[in-house]
Design a protein around this nucleic acid. Structure first.
Lengths: 242, 242
DNA sequence: CGGTAGGTTGAAAACTATCAATGAACGTGG
DNA sequence: CCACGTTCATTGATAGTTTTCAACCTACCG
């Protein structure tokens, strides 16, 4: 919050809240893990010394790093609004971190449950962005396009725009190519492959996924980030305020 | 906020705030631009009908799409906390959107300037993620690594860990390869190229950028997302509350 | 002193981009 | 209703980038 302080934007109450936070410096050794993906998400950390990084382990054995954290950075707000961690986090070298619970973050938000909701919504968007990054980094065009289509399918399904595994997708292959970072020509070829495998049927804007589960298996889809429900502990806290 | 409503987590005040928002549906035609990158950022939109997308125009003439927005999605919170847009946004087909000003978002945050700060911090992280996505998608290993190193350089400089254009980077080439989505072997080769061009000198963890400006030109670095200052209008609003 | 982790280099294979040509669908105006 | 231009999609051939596999080297650490 140094930025806000510099700009004189913190009220006495804000400052009191900040100063009232218990600082429990935790000394970390090199390579020490902060948390593993799918662990329960209940805190974030400010890095005081040392470097850290967040990453996702991939099915092919490698991993995709999402971000490096330098001193002063905050690790783990990305999972705010989720029940479980979407990615692992680990130290690179030895250092010191200050953990804060999401509950403390709640209190920082004051009385407004709406603010919590907005924050959670924003973090959900970031989760989608992270997933795309993961696929851009380490997967072939084939898996990327499959993942992309399955994501669209789930998002449309959530708002009731999927019927009989079919939906309307007003995207040209050029737009898709600009999203997935490949050439339009290759998008076309990849669509052909998916069609030959019986995974995707497409006629102009009409897309049908005959076997969504097969697609999901192909891309190992983690659909927790599509789900809009807040974790149970969140709901309790939010209701407790009413 | 449907999710919060479902969970019964909204207080009467929250609901009053929501219902008090003026809804000004705006009808958009296909391909109509919501905003261009580096335009002043002052609002976000909820998509009611139609699809939209946010993207970044690249120097090589193509563009990288960051996200597609479906009905119910929120376009443009990503720029909350920035003076100018980091990416353009545009409709795909025709549709309807509801614009809301960032000032309204402010008010949703209630009295807490801290909450605004946290939100802005989170959005800054998302901006970094977006930049990486852009480079993963459309740039060669050479430009990607250059961009990566320059980002680290700027972030370290901000916290005073750069001296004489040199800094300590405790990353192995394997970690870098996992971040940039390329093989460790290729990271090594790309480092060699940058060394031969006189752009990067590296000895184990010691990195020196003899000519940071040349690197910046190479990657067309947009450093606004590193900068931690909030836009002037923000500061005014925040101070007005004290 | 030897083991290990990290880095470099070479050659072959795989993947993807680019270029170019062709075809299908769609909207528009005559 | 048809002709036409435009956009979008497909296919083939070639070139370029990146990966993989392998060997080798160096610095560091017990």
């Amino acid at each position: 919050m140094r930025g806000l302080s510099i700009q004189g934007a913190l009220s006495p109450e804000d400052k009191a809240v900040l100063l009232g936070l218990e600082l429990n410096p935790r000394h970390m050794s090199a390579s020490e893990v902060l948390w593993q993906e799918s662990a329960v998400a209940d805190l974030f950390c400010v890095v005081k010394e040392g470097w850290a990084y967040s990453y996702r382990n991939l099915k092919n054995g490698s991993k995709q790093i999402l971000k490096f954290y330098l001193p002063g950075d905050i690790v783990g707000i990305r999972d705010f609004g989720f029940t479980r961690r979407l990615s692992s986090a680990s130290m690179i070298n030895k250092g010191v971190i200050y953990p804060f619970s999401y509950q403390q973050l709640f209190e920082l938000f004051g009385r407004s449950n709406l603010a919590v909701g907005i924050m959670a919504t924003a973090m959900r968007q970031q989760a989608l962005l992270s997933e795309r990054l993961i696929y851009l980094g380490k997967y072939s065009a084939h898996e990327q396009l499959a993942h992309f289509l399955y994501e669209i399918y789930l998002r449309l399904k959530r708002i009731g725009d999927v019927e009989d595994n079919s939906f309307l997708m007003p995207l040209t292959q050029e737009l898709i190519s600009d999203a997935l970072g490949m050439s339009p020509v290759h998008v076309s070829r990849t669509f052909s492959m998916l069609r030959e495998e019986g995974l995707v049927i497409r006629d102009r804007q009409h897309v049908k996924l005959p076997d969504p589960e097969a697609l999901a298996r192909l891309v190992e889809f983690n659909d927790s980030y599509i789900d809009e429900l807040l974790p149970p502990t969140f709901s309790e806290l939010l209701r407790a305020r009413l």
